[in-house]
Design a protein around this nucleic acid. Structure first.
Lengths: 206, 206, 206, 206
DNA sequence: TATGAATGAGCATTCATTCAT
DNA sequence: TATGAATGAATGCTCATTCAT
């Protein structure tokens, strides 16, 4: 009875351990520079063991991405659920996105800044239509923008395009702060994020 | 007479061929995934030949970056030299940046989206102070923003921070359009770029 | 039961096979001229397999040297343990050294005639003090010389210097007979060894 | 004319320059670890140029050996030509040999301690009979030993074997002092050489 | 479930050497 | 006489992955 359950739990735990190690190493050294052996060494298992949990190196990458989107979605869901002026809500959502990236640079880098050569082995049609694995997260943005537009006059009325443009903006902020963290003499990070987000949102309004 | 010249020309041509192959491959598969062999195969020379023109793989990367910044600077210089309202000039400069990235995706990807582990063999102090090899290009942005602020009232007065925030914005636009070109169901690219840039600039003004 | 043991035995056997191949090749062509591939080819395994048993090429060399000293020490220990006049014992020890070299030319060549650029990864302080890995063997010589000097009058009283000079002498004999075995028209080997050893020992006495 | 002569002189000079560079590098890093390119770099000529003066890398090695023997022979000739007691003369000759090795470690190492895989392209029958390229030098030793034996009673009467044994002894001294110069905690070098030579010569006498 | 052993393919780089000039 | 360009072969070593156990 309990034996089976324990086994299942242990298996899941190891799976998570592998993912954690992979995520950290991918983010730190880049997907290509990380070998299966190094991941295995870090968790103190044999390389072969990884293959019992993941088909290949690429699947590790895909899993990490999916996981990232789930985490992000959860964060965004909270903002959506909270009260407030639509404009303010949008601003807070964007800020949450950036903060998420900066506080999970490993996830962010791996998910949004790693070239994915080989597509996941299984991609549902549904996923393709709904903006891939990140669909749910993007949907929140669409909703937030839609509500802003519904409330007052805006310069743009194309919810989709506006949302995409906003995503681009905050992705630029997040990704540059992550990659060039040390290479570039940035001004105060908080200030930069504020300027970018405030500007983008203000630019959206009439 | 002409013999020497022809040799020089041929040598330069081969050098360019190597750079072109490397740039394309780096952009497509990522720096780490490209081997000297693959570059050599593409140009139909032996791997050894590459080493007659470049010290090592890292030098290839550095050369490509330098080249990119020079190309970009030239484009931006034209905008700077042209006449017009400071706000308009800024907008045009940002657009030139994005267009440059989209029409030189290999250059852009290799230069701005490749992690540079190993610094160039020679880095002048001047370069370090002036934001690396891209200093000149960034200087144009600083100038443009400075002029806008000098002309009329803006929400921000910090030229440096504002410039950096603007760079982040347009980098987000450029990089996402390049990487996820096919993976994501984008709205009309032109529209997206316009929204992002117009928004950012408008957000900058009071 | 026996399965594990068999595996262990097989692993040790392969390790020895690799060492044997390396030793032979190192001795024949010199350390630098022997590649991991060539060693692998000789034992009909892939080059990678060698790395499952040895960290790198240098470790192969070190292992061979250690092994050599152990073999040599064992031979010398027997002489030391035997009975006899100190002078005779010394002579017999020197002869054992030369014979060891001639009957293990690969060991000897690799250990005493190969330049060791890269020190072993781990060198104990003890080893450094005691003349490296060969400390035990050299200690036997020191002891033998010491006993000769303690017994009767000798021309020299410096045990250390005398021992070193004796080592030099027998190394000359051994190494030349090994390297130039075919290139030089030697007189009878036994005679040569006798002359050299007898002379050196006689020269030591008053 | 003078032109031809100058050319000849220049050619010879460059040849010597190449040999000097090769000798030094061979001795320092070992024959195998020295590349033609490195030799060329040191003399600031192109690698190709070396091939105008020497057939291949192996010929460089052979030339250096021949040269070494000539130098050594010259030194020994002086001793032979000098006056003195035969025993003393022998001792002085042996000392000259060791000193030669220690003050020309590059020559010595390359000539006596480098495995010669490929025999010289041209080896005369005469050379083979006369102990190879080093025949002249060895002849001096034979003569010196012969004279000692002719003068007084010795333990051995086999000039050839005794000479060879003496050579072995001094080679041991020379080679160990060169190779393990730093690896081994030698006593005073002069003392060691004296002990070895004095012992060997004394051992030769009745 | 987990692993140790094994490998073919690949890596960046250097080699001695040739050839056209 | 001298060289710059070029290369096939080789270097030590690491890779992702498989397979028998």
């Amino acid at each position: 009875m309990g034996v089976t359950e324990r086994k299942v739990r242990e298996k899941a735990a190891l799976r998570q351990e592998i993912l954690a190690a992979a995520r950290e190493l991918f983010a730190k050294h880049g997907y290509e520079s990380v070998s299966m052996r190094k991941i295995a060494e870090r968790i103190e298992y044999s390389p072969t063991t990884i293959y019992l949990h993941f088909r290949d190196k690429g699947e590790l990458l895909n899993e990490i991405c999916t996981e990232t989107f789930q985490l992000l979605s959860k964060k965004l869901a909270k903002v959506v659920a909270s009260e407030g002026d639509p404009v303010d809500l949008l601003r807070r959502g964007l800020r949450v996105y950036v903060d998420f990236g900066l506080s999970h640079p490993n996830h962010y880098r791996t998910t949004f800044m790693t070239p994915h050569q080989h597509p996941p082995h299984t991609v549902s049609l549904d996923q393709k239509i709904n903006f891939g694995t990140g669909g749910q997260a993007f949907q929140y943005l669409l909703d937030a923008v839609g509500r802003v537009m519904a409330t007052g006059p805006t310069r743009q009325t194309d919810v989709m395009a506006t949302s995409q443009a906003l995503w681009m903006t905050i992705h630029g902020v997040t990704s540059l702060l992550i990659t060039k963290e040390l290479e570039f003499p940035w001004s105060d990070k908080n200030l930069l994020i504020d300027i970018a987000i405030a500007g983008a949102v203000k630019g959206l309004l009439r």
